[in-house]
Structures are given as C-alpha cells and as structure tokens.
Design a protein around this nucleic acid. Structure first.
Lengths: 260, 260
DNA sequence: TGTAGGTATGAATCCGACT
DNA sequence: AAGTCGGATTCATACCTAC
C-alpha cells in the first residue's frame, strides 16, 4: 500500500514510527542555480528553465537557501529520516555538483555512514557551455544507517547496482521541472531490500513512487504542494484525478493524504 | 617543448614564473596525508593493489586527521599552481569520491573559482559490490583563476567539452598504478586554450604529458620519483630510456630534468 | 512504415542595463 | 552600490512534420 501526504517533511516524518522504513530515496530542492545570492532568489522556472521555452512547469518553493542554511536544513530532515529508517538501510539523495560537498556533510552530520556517489549521466542532451565541461550529470549521494544490512538480502537475489546511470530526460516522462526519468528511478530503487517500504520526503511529481510501484516496493511520499501530490497520485494510481482532493497538511500531527 | 622534472612539486612550482602557464591538469596522490615529505615517500603499492582505494579508508571520512591534512597539503600545492597560472586559465584535479568534498574545498581555498565536476566513467569493468552502487567513477574537479578567459579562445575553434567521459582502463595502456587511459586524457587536455602550456605537478607515468603532446600542447611535468620521470620521458619521447638519467631534484632551487 | 529535415529543449551562466 | 532583470549563448538529441 502507498501513502501520499501533503505537507512539510520536517513536520510529517517525525510522526512516523521509529525504525519502520527500509529506504529513503529523494531529490530535495538544491537551492542551486547561480554564483550569487541574487541568482538563487529567482523563481525556479527563471533559474532553471531556458528563456524562451514554451512548456511551463509550476515553480516549487524552498529553493532559495544559501549554502549554510541548506546544509543545516538538510541535516534536519536527514536526521528525521535516520530515525525512521531501520538499521542497515540505505538513503539516496540526489544532488547537483554545486551542493554535493554540502550534501555529503549533511548526510554524515545526520548520523549516516557515507558509502559513495553514484552518477546520473543525462547524456549530451544536457545544456552545453562553450569552452567548458558540459554540466551533464547529477549525483546520487548515498549511505546507510550503520553497517549495510547484507543479511536481510539473503534468499532474494542480490545484485550489484550500476555506479553510473545513463538516462536521457524525455518530454513525455517529465511531469515536473526537475522530474527524473522512470527508467533511472526503477534502477535506483533497487538499492532497497526486496519488498521494503521506500520513503521520499520530497516526491515532486512522484517518479520515485512510480518506480517503486513498478518494482514492487510499498511507497510513502511527501510533498509541500497539493498540485504535486495530485499529479503523483494520478501517476501511481494510473487514474485520472479524483473529484475530492485531500486537504493540505498544516499543523495537525496526523497528516492527511492519499492511501492507494 | 616539454620539461620533465624530478622532485617535490611544493619546491619546484614556486621556482616558475608567475602567470606563465595556461592550464594545470593533475591526478594527485589521494591518500597522501602528509605535509611532510617522509609521509608521502612511504610505499602506497600495498595499500592500492589488492583492494582498490576504498578499503584503505575508515568508514568515517570527513574531519579526520588524514582528510584534514590532505586538504591542507592540497591547498598548498594548488596555491602554488594558482600563482603560476595566467588569469582565466583552468585547473583540473582528479579525485575519487571520498576526497571529492575536500578537493573542492582546497581548490577554492587556493583562490580558484570552482566551476564544476566532470566524471570519468570506468564502465562496468570496475569491481562490483554486491547490493551496492558500483564505485565505477572518478571525478574531475575543475575551476579557473578568476573569470574564464573566453577572449583568448578567439580565432581557434572553441567547443563544448563532454561532462562525462566513458573510458575503460586497459592494461596495455597503463604504465602506472593509477594510470589514466590516453584517450581519456586527450579529451581532458582540450580544456586548455590551443597551444597553451600544461602543467602536471604529479605526473606519474606521464599520461597527461603524452596526451598533451598528441594534442599539440607544450607540457611541464613533475614527479617525486625518478622511476616515473624516466617512464614519462620514454613515453613522451617515444624512445627508450637514455643511459644518463637526470638527477633527483633536492634543495637546489633550479630543478634538473629532461628537456625534450 | 520510413526517411529526411527543421525546430524545440536543457536543475545555466554571463554580462550589461536598470532600479 | 547592491540587488534585479532580461537577453544571448551552446549543441546533441528528441520530437515533429512533410514527403
């Protein structure tokens, strides 16, 4: 069973039971985009979308922190995730090149053992820049709560996962400004032990959830925006949007949302 | 014309003229913790040959002593490189995933503008790890001395370089424990403006120098080990070793070596 | 269904003009 | 002045349209 919740991860995750989940796989707002503070303060579409693009995506909030506060905030939500993960279970966090060092700091500050960096190669379709190395990769900073739980993989076939994923972004597979390809996420979720429940505290349009469903993992997703929760629900359910949408989670400690 | 020098980069680079070189491309020792020569002189073969780099580190990288002193030492030699580079010119430093955050810190501490991370994908030939993401990539942390010098690229054709290099490690193209494929390095050296002189303060067996030669760049290489300097000389010259090898650079401020 | 050719796009960046 | 705003740029690939 899947649960999709609308609200702030910093409020919702603490309501979950300790040591109840099997993996965290997420793509938080990077607060990147620009050398100067002013550049980060733009709307996300202004920062990340090419001027003159016809297709429009909704802006998302929480993308204007500076480096220090981004690391501080990341440590907070990663600590919450640490609490609800079972011992030996993995966390995977997407990052761009600029935030990568801060991301590894926050992961370790939250108590995780940093295990490595995997690479998402977006191929040569990524935006070029004359006389420079093309910024065509994003990074998957990953670690575990204590020693990796190899034991739990007994019985089920245990695979080595790739360290570099080559996956281009397709228009018909992109439901969010920063949406990830489904084929990429189907590979990534396999870091979770078979049948384990996966949490994505910043699910966006729900690519992690869709991939989890396709690979047979129960999924818990959280997003600040009702719009995104609706899109994710529709994608994962494979249905059109319901007439009655769930209410926004505010201060009530018991979140509301979809159970699908 | 190429120059190959034997000695300590921290002694030799300061003897070069300020703002006299056009690029720094290098692969420093990853685990060389020492500020002191003796620390770096210890044999690393045993550490690397059996397990690859990752097993030799503790599970808790970051602010331990090895990491701190590596970053400190890196800042020193990068600062030397900063001085001898012309304004607007690039520096490229290879790093493994563990040292990557420290490497970006040191690069910026030395005064460079950090511009990004490129990826060397060693492909699936890298050693697999059950139930984990394969550590199959190394990283090229790169930056520039001030704003990138686009002006100097006028006239010559300027291109966007790839951000992910796929290159398998071939045994017959490997003259050194951590040698890089020539095809990889031929791509990387193109970050240097056409005809510019490239410095590699830790040249090892000279892959950077060989690539520089093939792509038409003058090259200055430094290595602590006479053995490596001899190998590099032979590779770049395409000849057998000379009967009289150059003397080890010690405290004499005017280094000796090959001019080829 | 297949091929060829034109157009749109990308988790940017730089720079100059304006407030 | 520091902060904002907007236009130009880069090229491999996907996507669309015409034949």
């Amino acid at each position: 069973m899947n649960r999709l919740l609308c609200g702030d991860a910093l409020r919702i995750v603490p309501t979950f039971d300790e040591a109840s989940l099997d993996a965290v796989i997420t793509d938080p707002p990077y607060s990147s985009g620009g050398t100067f503070r002013g550049d980060r303060m733009q709307t996300t579409t202004k920062k990340y979308q090419l001027t003159g693009t016809s297709k429009t995506y909704s802006d998302f909030s929480g993308d204007n922190r500076d480096g220090r506060s981004w690391a501080f905030w990341s440590t907070l939500w990663m600590s919450d995730c640490f609490r609800v993960l079972k011992t030996g279970c993995p966390i995977v966090v997407f990052s761009d090149w600029r935030m990568l060092p801060l991301c590894t700091d926050a992961l370790q500050a939250a108590g995780f053992v940093w295990r490595g960096i995997a690479v998402w190669d977006k191929t040569e379709a990524a935006r070029p820049d004359k006389g420079r190395f093309r910024a065509q990769a994003e990074y998957l900073v990953w670690g575990s709560k204590g020693p990796m739980a190899v034991d739990r993989l007994d019985g089920a076939e245990t695979r080595c996962l790739p360290g570099v994923f080559r996956a281009i972004v397709r228009q018909d597979d992109k439901f969010h400004l920063t949406g990830k390809p489904t084929n990429l996420m189907r590979q990534v979720v396999k870091i979770c032990a078979p049948g384990g429940t996966i949490l994505d505290p910043f699910m966006g349009s729900g690519s992690t959830g869709k991939a989890a469903q396709l690979e047979g993992y129960p999924f818990v997703g959280i997003d600040l925006s009702q719009h995104n929760v609706d899109i994710a629900q529709a994608r994962i359910n494979g249905k059109t949007l319901p007439s009655s949408t769930p209410t926004l989670f505010t201060s009530d400690p018991s979140p509301t949302g979809y159970e699908i």
